[in-house]
Write a protein that binds this DNA or RNA. Structure first.
Lengths: 332, 332
DNA sequence: CTGAAAGCGCTTACAG
DNA sequence: CTGAAAGCGCTTACAG
């Protein structure tokens, strides 16, 4: 491999000068600069970024630890985060939750000296959170947050759940099923609280046989949906904690030959782009598409480049908008 | 930051021994090994992988350069590639086509000394292809291939297009519109050839007003769809070169208040997972889900670990299966 | 089984 | 404006 020594030799200068031409061109006389540039060209020299990183202690790499792409929400955030980082001159190391323990991913990331971390996969009481804070590596959480503190950008999940539940109540629904993911995750925790709160205000209560927690996989959601719709007194509406779950739920409902919303209303939360497809038309509530990922990435890069003010965590809560489409209708 | 020197000092051994404990534990006496291990534990030592890479000349990193996640096909390959790589102990640097010129991505990748490259975004006559070959970095292309040679795993696009076109002809369709992406990409080129071939065999020909090439974006496909369906003599069936395009097409058709397949039949190619959703039920043709990405990653890792046999390129062509669902029906 | 020394390919004070 | 020297944190022959 060609190194800066080779370039230096060919240009008849020192290695330091080659380095300067690369990193601070104005500091070297045009004449010498051109000699170096020509040598670089001639040799097809490619600086070894690994070596550079070792001395500068910066890799221009951010790590993205994201929920699985089976959830369309993370498809949108992953796409926009990677593109934004790329445009800003950062490489993105991607990990999807589940393939490896967060602990091991974090160790790998530390060893690789990434400049910053973007993380969706944190639990409410995750022991990793404190470690990440302590590591001093700039980070932004997105979509989920820990119980206390941290830098994050999330949806106002409580409000989102309130809004969509209100909508269902207004349509006359009283038997509303709720399918949630594990409530040790802030998103699911906060959405459930919002749902319960509105029920309570309406003089209703969360009925155990209409409330289900599952692992958010399509097969699990499907099973629960079938169980619900086979009840002697099935719900007239189903609220799913995410749009991705609502898609699975819809799939199961339709597979039974039932119609939406005639036989059962269906709603989700997140308002991912597929929700607006004319074949889906899912009523949902969420923030404008893509923005969560972008905001997280923007803030992270700012922290990397202008330093972290650890006394003032970045906590951004986006306000949701209700989007009524075709999967919710009056109770019959 | 704690280095192996600190560990060595604390354990009362040399840096070499610390290195051995990490990389070849059996080569050091249990006694010394334990002293070192204890020191590592005590100091919370994390080896600097950047420094290691500089000397071993291996980063355990693969670069994935993928088509955009707006196309569900690449969602599935990205998900399975990243997970497979992670499980095998490789990090994945991800780039999406379009955010940066392939030329610049490649330079960045070379500088970062990745162990291998997984690339979907190659054109038929892409000047970058030769450069990649020449670089000597192990690589696998997937989904698309260059005109000649290379390591790749692709669908038998010609057969896929043949099969789906046959299906449409058998349903009685004669005015079949075809919406394609740019034909300087092998996928679109081969699919178009397959489509034309079957038409020709049936004594039909590709009619200019029914054949459209676009940039595959949802808005472009939508525009073309509207144009087609507003013709005085609209097509009775539309074949889209990818399922992702078929989804956009479906969206546009439904937005006009038309029904599928009553007013127009619709088919795609790829058979991505969303195609089987009960609200979509898209007739398509493709290989079993996820496998293309996995096969590409498996082969790449094998090349990285067991060496490249450059005289025998890896060329894997997967056979498609036709999956008839609800978007295609008899011509009325 | 272990250590001292050299080296991977850069950058960065320091001196001139 | 430029060069010689030291150093980033590892690994790897080599010697013992």
């Amino acid at each position: 491999m060609i190194s800066s020594r080779d370039v230096a030799k060919m240009a008849g200068v020192s290695q330091s000068t080659v380095s300067r031409v690369l990193n601070n061109p104005e500091s070297v006389k045009p004449d010498t600069r051109n000699k170096v540039l020509r040598a670089i060209e001639e040799l097809g020299y490619q600086p070894n970024l690994i070596a550079r990183s070792l001395v500068t202690n910066s890799t221009r790499t951010i790590a993205l630890i994201s929920g699985t792409l089976s959830n369309g929400f993370f498809v949108e955030t992953t796409n926009s985060i990677v593109d934004l980082a790329t445009n800003r001159g950062y490489k993105t190391m991607v990990y999807f939750e589940g393939a490896m323990a967060l602990r091991d991913i974090f160790d790998s990331i530390r060893g690789n000296k990434v400049d910053g971390i973007l993380l969706s996969s944190i639990k409410l009481d995750d022991p990793m959170f404190e470690e990440i804070e302590r590591s001093g590596i700039p980070y932004m959480l997105f979509n989920r947050r820990p119980r206390k503190g941290g830098n994050y950008v999330i949806l106002d999940n409580f409000s989102a759940a309130e809004m969509i539940t209100h909508h269902l109540l207004e349509l006359g629904h009283r038997r509303i099923a709720y399918i949630s993911g594990e409530t040790n995750i802030s998103t699911f925790f906060e959405r459930k609280i919002g749902f319960e709160q509105v029920l309570r205000e309406a003089g209703l209560s969360l009925q155990p046989d209409l409330f289900h927690v599952c692992d958010t996989s399509s097969s699990e959601v499907g099973k629960i949906t079938l169980k619900l719709m086979h009840m002697s007194n099935p719900p007239t509406a189903i609220l799913c904690a995410t749009d991705a779950m609502a898609f699975s739920c819809m799939d199961a409902v339709l597979s039974m030959g039932l119609r939406i919303p005639e036989d059962v209303s269906l709603a989700g939360i997140d308002d991912i782009s597929m929700a607006s497809h004319h074949a889906i038309q899912l009523t949902s509530v969420g923030h404008h598409k893509f923005r969560i990922g972008e905001i997280a990435a923007e803030n992270l890069i700012e922290m990397i480049e202008h330093g972290v003010e650890s006394d003032r965590p970045r906590q951004i809560i986006l306000q949701p908008e209700l989007v009524i489409r075709k999967t919710t209708g009056r109770k019959r």
